[in-house]
Structures are given as structure tokens and as C-alpha cells.
Computed example of a mutant assay.
Amino acid sequence: MKFSIDAIDIKLLEALQDDASQSNQALAARTHISPPTCLRRVKRLRDAGLIERDIAILHADKLAETLGHGLTAVVEITLDRQGAEQQEAFEARVAPDGAVQQCYRVSPGPDFVLVVHVRDMPAYLALAQRLFTSDVNVRNVKAFFSLKRSKFEPKLLLTP
């Protein structure tokens, strides 16, 4: 059965992307619906899998005062053999690693683009050894190290 959403569902999803910690009453007021309707609709969106999970987005610059800035890299990976089985095997190896924040299969160019975050360069080298160098199917690795993050907005655009 096809799941459909309407303008109210889109307003709810947009509001939750801005702040998933707001109360049901605040969310209902923001989207101009009653609290019981809001609660029912959000449950429906969760049950349908449209809301994958709620997370806290940490303020990297404020944490850097105590933990250090860390090192973020965008890493391009090219595999020697690009069959579905080899791509799935690579994903299965890298996705569970806590340092891998994002993993994308891409085309054209490299086979994968990863966003990784580690404590420092020695930690990146350990990650590269663990995930890339030790994999005989990894042909090429190209890493780009972030000097400054000017935008981080983990939101999907739901309206034009």
C-alpha cells in the first residue's frame, strides 16, 4: 500500500527537522493543528518510517574547547572490482565504523565518498589502514581534509 503525505505532514516534518525536542503542544501550535491531531500524525509518520530517528546535533566548535577540533575528511574511494557483491562488502566493512559519519555510492568518478571524523592525523592513519589499506579491493584513496566547516544542515528539502 502506498503511503501518502499532505501539506500538514510536510509542515510537521519540516518543524521536526528544525527541532525534534519541542513538545507536542509547541509542535501543534507551530503547525496550526490540535495537540491530539499532532500526536497522531507524528506517530503515523514514525510508524511509516519517514522519521528514522531523533538525535542531538552537537556544537563542534564549543566541544572543541575541551576535546579539540578533531579532523574531518571527505574521502574518495575507488574499488578495483565494482560488482554489486564487492560494493556491498565494502559498505558492510566501513558503515559500522564510528568514525565514518556518511557513506555514499557515487557515479561517475570514485565508487564511494565517505565523510569521516577522527581525533587527529594518527587516528586518521589508523582508520585508513583499518578500512582502506587492508582491503585488497581498494584501488585508490583520495582524502580531502576540512579546514573549516562553513555549513552543516542535516535537513531534507521538502518544499521548493
Rank of each mutant, 00 (worst) to 15 (best):
Lys2Asn: 09
Lys2Val: 05
Lys2Trp: 06
Phe3Tyr: 09
Phe3Arg: 12
Asp6Phe: 11
Asp6Glu: 06
Ile8Arg: 11
Asp9Tyr: 07
Asp9Arg: 12
Leu12Met: 08
Leu13Asn: 08
Glu14His: 03
Ala15Tyr: 00
Ala15Glu: 07
Leu16Arg: 09
Asp19Gln: 04
Asp19Tyr: 09
Ala20Arg: 01
Gln22His: 09
Gln22Gly: 02
Ser23Ile: 09
Ser23Val: 11
Asn24His: 10
Gln25Ala: 15
Gln25Lys: 15
Gln25Ile: 13
Ala26Asp: 10
Ala29Arg: 10
Ala29Leu: 11
Arg30Gln: 10
Thr31Lys: 03
His32Pro: 00
His32Val: 05
Ser34Lys: 15
Ser34Glu: 11
Ser34Asn: 14
Pro35Phe: 01
Thr37Asn: 14
Thr37Asp: 13
Leu39Tyr: 08
Leu39Val: 12
Lys43Met: 05
Arg46Met: 14
Arg46Leu: 04
Arg46Gly: 04
Asp47Asn: 14
Gly49Arg: 06
Leu50Lys: 09
Ile51Thr: 03
Ile51Gln: 00
Glu52Arg: 13
Ile57Asn: 05
Ala60Lys: 03
Asp61Ile: 10
Leu63Glu: 03
Leu63Arg: 01
Glu65Ser: 10
Glu65Arg: 14
Thr66Met: 07
Leu67Arg: 13
His69Ala: 10
Leu71Ala: 10
Thr72Ser: 09
Ala73Pro: 05
Ala73Arg: 12
Val74Phe: 12
Glu76Asn: 13
Ile77Asn: 07
Leu79Phe: 03
Leu79Ala: 04
Leu79Trp: 03
Leu79Ile: 05
Gln82Met: 06
Gly83Pro: 09
Gly83Ile: 07
Gln86His: 13
Gln86Ala: 15
Gln86Gly: 06
Glu88Ala: 10
Ala89Trp: 00
Phe90Val: 09
Ala92Val: 00
Ala92Leu: 05
Val94Thr: 06
Ala95Lys: 15
Ala95Gly: 00
Asp97Trp: 03
Asp97His: 15
Ala99Arg: 06
Ala99Glu: 04
Gln101His: 11
Gln101Ser: 10
Gln101Glu: 13
Tyr104Asn: 08
Val106Trp: 06
Ser107Pro: 02
Pro110Ser: 12
Pro110Gly: 02
Asp111Ser: 04
Phe112Arg: 05
Leu114Thr: 02
Val115Asn: 04
Val118Met: 01
Asp120Phe: 10
Asp120Ile: 15
Met121Glu: 02
Met121Val: 14
Pro122Leu: 07
Ala123Trp: 02
Ala123Asp: 11
Ala123Thr: 01
Ala126Asn: 13
Ala128Val: 00
Gln129Pro: 00
Gln129Leu: 12
Gln129Gly: 14
Leu131Ile: 01
Phe132Met: 06
Ser134Phe: 08
Ser134Trp: 05
Ser134Leu: 05
Val136Asn: 09
Val136Thr: 14
Val138Tyr: 03
Val138Gln: 03
Val138Pro: 08
Arg139Asn: 07
Arg139Ile: 00
Asn140Tyr: 06
Asn140Val: 02
Lys142Cys: 00
Lys142His: 13
Phe145Val: 13
Ser146His: 04
Leu147Val: 14
Leu147Asp: 01
Arg149Leu: 13
Lys151Trp: 08
Lys151Leu: 11
Phe152Leu: 07
Phe152Asp: 14
Glu153Thr: 10
Glu153Met: 11
Glu153Asn: 12
Leu156Phe: 10
Leu157Asp: 05
Leu157Ile: 02
Leu157Met: 07
Leu158Pro: 03
